[in-house]
Write a protein that binds this DNA or RNA. Structure first.
Length: 336
DNA sequence: GCTATTTGACCAAA
DNA sequence: TTTGGTCAAATAGC
């Protein structure tokens, strides 16, 4: 007998945690293996190197498999026997760039939910225009935060609408709304703030659900088959205004693990056509700081880009603090 | 000229 | 009163 959704989530949570813990453990092992291997290469001694690499590969597979399983559990796919093996994931991630263990650590990915109440905030339309700055400070909008060592793409088009110095905060907070706020009445917003300098940690707080159909994400992911390390644009916050005017529309390119969606998805052609048809503004779709990176063709080879985190938000239950997408995003920054 | 970003002002919640 | 979130005019970039 199938559990109801909340029960299912709760029962899976333990397994999710196990998977994540295992993944972290394996990642630590992998780091040691890589470090050993690196030192071996540096010293010019080839003995045993091959075995280390083989071991590393195995760990990579296990790690990726662990995260993939986590994703599938979160998406309720496990029961369908769709757990992805490490090998499968490796196939998708192979060729992705060099190992750069210094740039990322699983411990730096922190996702937490702060509030899962129903979104209620509705400004009075009659007063909206006349009252500059008027708003209802959000209390009931569900939100969740995400700490990352770099600014990463979340697959949606954002427009910066404000920046504010925060009390006791070294760095200003940047405010973004969904590009489709007006053309599609999408109420999603996010705040991004650098909370640590060294190593840099950026906290992104998301509010509200995306009700827009942002086809960019799909097209972007389809097009991207280059190394995420190469194509990702990690922009530091330090001098956002002067040095990185691009910041507000930053996104990085990432890979995603295949997770089938229950709902039908538009075809790629449709995606692109819709994208162009919905020409709210060209800049809204400027998601890659390296547009040429998309030039490189690459077969999808099983990759799909059907995950829309915000489409899942309604599925995230209180107590289970992650949305599938964010795990996905972080996991996929795990490059080896 | 159009669009995105910046930034000071405004307002409500704490 | 302070602080944080948003608006919208001004500005910049294409």
């Amino acid at each position: 007998m199938a559990l109801s959704w909340p029960e299912s989530v709760l029962s899976n949570r333990e397994r999710v945690m196990e998977e994540l813990i295992q993944g972290r453990e394996l990642a630590s092992q992998l780091r040691r293996v890589l470090d050993d291997h690196k030192s071996t290469l540096v010293s010019g001694c080839g003995g045993g190197g091959g075995r280390d690499v083989g071991s590393a590969e195995g760990l990579v597979n296990k790690i990726l498999g662990s995260f993939a399983n986590t994703l599938l559990i979160l998406n309720g796919k496990e029961a369908d026997g769709e757990i992805v093996s490490g090998d499968q994931i490796q196939g998708n991630s192979s060729g992705g760039g060099s190992a750069d263990s210094s740039s990322w650590d699983a411990n730096h990915a922190i996702i937490k939910s702060e509030d899962f109440h129903e979104e209620i905030s509705c400004k009075s339309a009659s007063t909206l225009k006349d009252r500059r700055g008027s708003y209802k400070r959000r209390k009931t909008t569900h939100s969740w935060t995400r700490d990352t060592p770099a600014l990463t793409d979340d697959g949606h088009a954002w427009r910066k609408y404000g920046q504010k110095a925060i009390h006791n905060a070294k760095h200003p907070r940047n405010y973004f709304r969904c590009t489709h706020k007006f053309d599609q009445s999408c109420q999603a917003t996010k705040h991004v703030q650098q909370i640590l300098d060294d190593p840099p940690v950026f906290r992104t707080t998301y509010y509200g659900n995306h009700t827009c159909r942002d086809y960019l994400k799909a097209s972007e992911l389809i097009l991207d088959c280059t190394s995420p390390r190469e194509s990702s644009s990690f922009i530091r916050f330090g001098d956002i205004k002067q040095d990185h005017p691009f910041f507000s529309s930053f996104t990085s390119v990432k890979k995603e693990v295949v997770i089938k969606e229950e709902k039908p998805q538009p075809s790629d052609d449709h995606v692109m056509a819709s994208h162009h048809h919905n020409h709210s503004s060209s800049g809204d779709y400027n998601v890659s700081p390296h547009p040429t990176a998309f030039k490189s063709s690459c077969p999808l080879s099983g990759l799909s880009s059907t995950i829309d985190p915000y489409d899942h938000e309604g599925d995230v239950m209180s107590g289970l603090i992650v949305g599938p997408y964010y795990f996905d995003d972080e996991v996929l920054q795990y490059e080896f």
